[in-house]
Design a protein around this nucleic acid. Structure first.
Length: 272
DNA sequence: CTGTTCTCCTGTGGGC
DNA sequence: TGCCCACAGGAGAACA
């Protein structure tokens, strides 16, 4: 489950492909979350990749005439492969580039929750992107902003911060981790959280995400960066998936509850 | 508008 | 060892 840090690491890892021209697009399986445009091969042929940006968990791969909006979903992964890399079972799309090395941007996604969407318009105006909330590391994502945004919302705070229209990039794992760090219990209604606690939550989200990016990291067993090296952040959760195990701060057992049909973990003693 | 539930999918792991 | 099945989850769609 790539979260924002993994997506950012992936984007950075793909930068060597910039300015390379597409020679061929191979679509082995077009049935991702939305059907992949089967005309991509003719659309992108001879087009140079001119930019790689990120908005939330979406990667924008831009070409002179349009943009691929890519989401890794649950199990998606982008890597730079070569002609001699064996194609594996769930390698659904290859974008093959010209040049002596014949680099390949390869999309693999066993569960196919991800998506590759072609647009010739401004990607920031795309309906998937337009209404996204602020980036967690931007100054725009502040205690003032979040407090205002949540003051009338009765949903629990964990579901609120996982809502990409509130703030992007906070998935199930980092939501639990951030709330532990902020010492706020996940099931509390969002509008009953004090301004000070909101500030702690904002700080915690920034800290957790920044940390994960700096560690090059992953919270995911099957996340690999573009060179195939495993992330090494995966066993550093304080509460996630630690049901019944002792809290690192106070030894109380970590509790698991279900919120919005997703597992949530917290320490009843440390979080208020 | 808000909040809730459903949905897509395959790999993994527990139980027997 | 093999079979069955619950579970995992991003986030839009559909629904109340």
């Amino acid at each position: 489950m790539p979260e924002l840090p993994e997506v950012e690491i992936t984007r950075l890892g793909l930068m060597p492909l910039i300015n390379h021209k597409v020679s061929q697009v191979v679509i082995r399986n077009s049935s991702l979350r939305w059907p992949v445009n089967l005309a991509l091969n003719s659309i992108l042929k001879d087009m140079p990749l001119v930019g790689l940006q990120r908005r939330g968990k979406y990667i924008f791969a831009s070409f002179p005439i349009g943009t691929l909006i890519i989401h890794l979903g649950m199990s998606g992964r982008l890597c730079i492969a070569s002609k001699k890399s064996a194609v594996q079972k769930h390698d659904h799309v290859d974008i093959i580039f010209n040049g002596p090395e014949n680099k390949i941007l390869r999309y693999r996604d066993p569960r196919r929750f991800g998506s590759i969407t072609w647009t010739e318009d401004d990607p920031y105006q795309h309906k998937l992107i337009m209404s996204l909330g602020p980036e967690p590391l931007d100054n725009e994502f502040s205690a003032d902003y979040l407090y205002e945004k949540l003051r009338n919302k009765s949903v629990c705070i964990k579901n609120a911060i996982m809502n990409s229209h509130v703030v992007v990039g906070v998935g199930n794992i980092y939501a639990s981790e951030s709330l532990f760090q902020a010492r706020v219990q996940p099931h509390r209604p969002a509008h009953k959280i004090s301004k000070d606690e909101i500030k702690s939550i904002v700080d915690a989200i920034k800290d957790v995400i920044e940390n994960a990016i700096n560690k090059g990291g992953s919270t995911l067993n099957d996340f690999f960066d573009v060179d195939g090296k495993s992330g090494y952040f995966q066993n550093e959760h304080h509460v996630y998936a630690r049901k019944g195990m002792p809290c690192y701060l106070c030894d109380h057992p970590i509790l698991q509850i279900t919120l919005g049909q997703r597992s949530s973990f917290y320490c009843k003693n440390c979080q208020k």
